[in-house]
Write a protein that binds this DNA or RNA. Structure first.
Lengths: 199, 199
DNA sequence: TGTACATCAGTGAACGCGCGTTCACTGATGTAC
DNA sequence: TGTACATCAGTGAACGCGCGTTCACTGATGTAC
């Protein structure tokens, strides 16, 4: 890892690593070309061997953050069995990610003027959608509702994560029972029936 | 308005006006001290007579954007009669504001290191909360649920506004029926019962 | 197996620019007497 | 009603800094023959 020879260093990975490390600490503040080049002890120009522009670099770091989120969601899902629990685990993990890693979360959804070099893998959106498709397979929602349900649940979780992790004095409290209450209300919005009736 | 004399101009208002104008066009990109001072044909130092720092100026412009949002929500509410319609009008207006004024919306919730000089007036959050309190007065929700419901509905609407107004290729479609579907699902999450049963 | 050479992946210095902020200073306004 | 003077609200130039990007160049690697 420390073998920073003149040549043949895995500079791209090192830049992304440094970017993620910086993102954790201070969000999207210090993700510039010169700053990160200095961080990995490299000339600024070297960055352009691997990224088309500073925006491209930022976009790839943002992607790293999203993929980390996706991995945590996948990990959380693996511990649950019922489709409802699996679905709620994705939302809970999403919110916890935003609260535990505010810098990384803000970078994950920062606006970039350039696209990343490849598609997200794993993709947090796909993980979310898959858990909705599972609800569909179980007959809890109809196939035609999949897109609507995904958008609704994603929006509610994403909005809560943004607001609770923000600095507004009126922001929602980030307490477990509040989060569970939110997930419960999302569930009502998904199945459109009260749980008691469903049972 | 054009009386830009040496002295006695309402520079503070002019700066905020220019900031809002710039925010509409390009979000939070060009809200710096030097840029806005130049925009209103004034020396940069003059800005510091009215704002403690560049961050303070940005915070006040952000506040202007939030207050504009709040005014539109109030206006929309005034056309509705039933509490449900009034509530949904706030959410619909919030989303439409984000879609029609993406720059202003992003500035409204941009992170600022300094607080604004006064409280929001009108406050979008208060408008939202008031419409939830109306639901409570009508007996549709319990008093103890007010905070939970406000957080849930605010999160869902805010998240949808952020995602739909973003640049992600997987973002929700910004079509009326999608938005109405979202508002309907939020309503289920609020009352926790299907509408048919309620009637 | 050795060598010539193209290519790759970096160096190091510099550019123009806009940023937030500060300096000493000044023209206009308001007020006390 | 006039005047002296404090205060207010600006000017204009400059600072140090970090930004994205570009220049010509070079050390290391890989490959054809």
């Amino acid at each position: 890892m420390k073998t920073q020879k003149y040549h043949h260093g895995n500079l791209e990975a090192a830049l992304l690593e440094a970017g993620v490390r910086e993102a954790r600490i201070s969000g999207s503040k210090n993700l510039g070309v010169n700053a990160l080049a200095k961080e990995v002890s490299v000339s600024p120009m070297a960055v352009y061997r691997h990224f088309s522009s500073g925006e491209g670099l930022k976009a790839s770091i943002s992607q790293q953050a999203r993929e980390e989120l996706a991995r945590r969601m996948i990990e959380a899902i693996s511990h649950e069995t019922s489709v409802k629990e699996r679905f709620e685990a994705t939302g809970r993990t999403y919110i916890q990610f935003a609260l535990n890693e505010p810098g990384l979360f803000s970078v994950a959804f920062v606006a970039c003027e350039a696209p990343p070099k490849r598609e997200d893998s794993p993709s947090a959106w796909m993980v979310f959608q898959d858990s909705v498709l599972d609800l569909c397979n179980e007959g809890l929602i109809q196939a035609a509702e999949v897109r609507q349900v995904t958008d609704f649940a994603w929006a509610a979780v994403h909005g809560y994560a943004n607001l609770a992790g923000g600095s507004d004095p009126m922001r929602p409290k980030a307490e477990p029972e509040i989060i569970e209450g939110l997930l419960e209300r999302i569930w009502f919005g998904i199945v459109k029936e009260s749980v008691e009736i469903k049972k």
